[in-house]
C-alpha cells in the first residue's frame, strides 16, 4: 500500500486540539440530548402504560412517529423545515437568535428521537413488574401518581439499566450525524484533519479509538451500577 504513515500528526497542534475539541462537542451533544431523551422518554413511556385510551394513543403516536423516520431526515426537518413553518420571528430566533443554533438543533433532534426509544424501554420495564405490585400499592391507598412515583418507576429504572445504557451509547454514536448540519464534533474533526493533512488513517483511527474507549468505559460503569442496584429475585432486561 502506498501510504506514508505519520502518527505524530495526532500529537501536533492544531490537530491534537481539534480532536479534543471535537470529542468535547460530541460529549456535549450526547449528554444534553440524553437528558432530554430520558425525561421525555419517561413521560411518554408512562403515558403508554396508563389504562386510559387517550394518553396511550398520544404515547403510541409519539413513539411511532419518531421511530419510523430516519434520524437524518428528522435532523433536516428540525434544521431546514421547522424554522420556515413557524412564525417568522420564531424562525429567525431558531436560525440566528439563540447562540450556536446548529448545536442546539442537533441536541433537540437527538433528544426527541431517542426519547421514543427510552419510552419503549420504560414501558417494557413497567410491563416487567408483576401486576401484584401495582395492585398492592393501590390497595395501600396510594394514588396512581404515587404508585408510579414510589413503586413502578423506581423498580422499572433499576431493571432497565442495561437497555438504557445501550440507548445512551446510541445517542453518543448518533451525535455524529450533527456534522451534516455543521456541528464540528469528533467525526467531523477527524475528517477535517484528513482534509488538511491527508493522513486519513491516523485521523479516523483516533476517532475510532475514542468512540470505543467511551463505549468500553460506559459499559464497565453500567455493569458496576447494575450489580449494585440489582433487585434480588428480578432479572434485569437484556442490553440490546
Amino acid at each position: 500500500m502506498n501510504y506514508k504513515w505519520d502518527w505524530g500528526i495526532l500529537l501536533q497542534e492544531p490537530y491534537f486540539g481539534w480532536i479534543w475539541a471535537g470529542f468535547g462537542w460530541t460529549c456535549a451533544v450526547a449528554i444534553l440530548a440524553w437528558m432530554i431523551a430520558l425525561s421525555l422518554g419517561s413521560v411518554i413511556g408512562v403515558l403508554r402504560t396508563i389504562p386510559h385510551p387517550l394518553p396511550r394513543a398520544i404515547g403510541t403516536a409519539y413513539v411511532e412517529l419518531f421511530r419510523n423516520i430516519p434520524l437524518l431526515v428528522q435532523l433536516f426537518l428540525w434544521y431546514f423545515v421547522v424554522p420556515e413553518v413557524v412564525p417568522r420571528e420564531a424562525g429567525m430566533f431558531l436560525k440566528r437568535g439563540l447562540p450556536m443554533p446548529e448545536f442546539w438543533t442537533a441536541v433537540v433532534c437527538l433528544g426527541f428521537y431517542h426519547g421514543a426509544r427510552v419510552a419503549e424501554q420504560v414501558r417494557s420495564g413497567i410491563g416487567a413488574i408483576r401486576d401484584g405490585q401495582r395492585q398492592a400499592a393501590l390497595a395501600m391507598g396510594l394514588t396512581t401518581t404515587q404508585v408510579y412515583r414510589y413503586v413502578l418507576l423506581p423498580v422499572s429504572y433499576r431493571i432497565i439499566i442495561p437497555p438504557l445504557t445501550s440507548d445512551f451509547l446510541g445517542v453518543f454514536k448518533n451525535s455524529s450525524l450533527a456534522l451534516t448540519i455543521g456541528v464540528i464534533e469528533l467525526t467531523a474533526r477527524s475528517r477535517q484533519i484528513e482534509e488538511y493533512t491527508f493522513q486519513g488513517f491516523e485521523a479516523f483511527a483516533a476517532a475510532t479509538v475514542l468512540y470505543s474507549l467511551v463505549t468500553f468505559a460506559v459499559m464497565t460503569l453500567m455493569h458496576v451500577t447494575e450489580r449494585r442496584t440489582r433487585i434480588p429475585g428480578m432479572i434485569s432486561l437484556e442490553a440490546k
Binding site: 454514536k173 455524529s176 475528517r191 479516523f204 475510532t208 468512540y211 467511551v214
Partner: peptide
C-alpha cells in the same frame, strides 16, 4: 461484534469509502 457496535455508522462509512480502496490498492 463489540468493536463495530461501539462505532458510529458514519465513521464506518468514512473508513470504507475513503480508505478501503487505498488499502486494497
Amino acid at each position: 461484534v463489540n468493536f463495530f457496535r461501539s462505532l458510529p455508522l458514519i465513521l464506518v462509512i468514512f473508513w470504507f469509502y475513503f480508505l478501503v480502496p487505498k488499502m486494497l490498492g
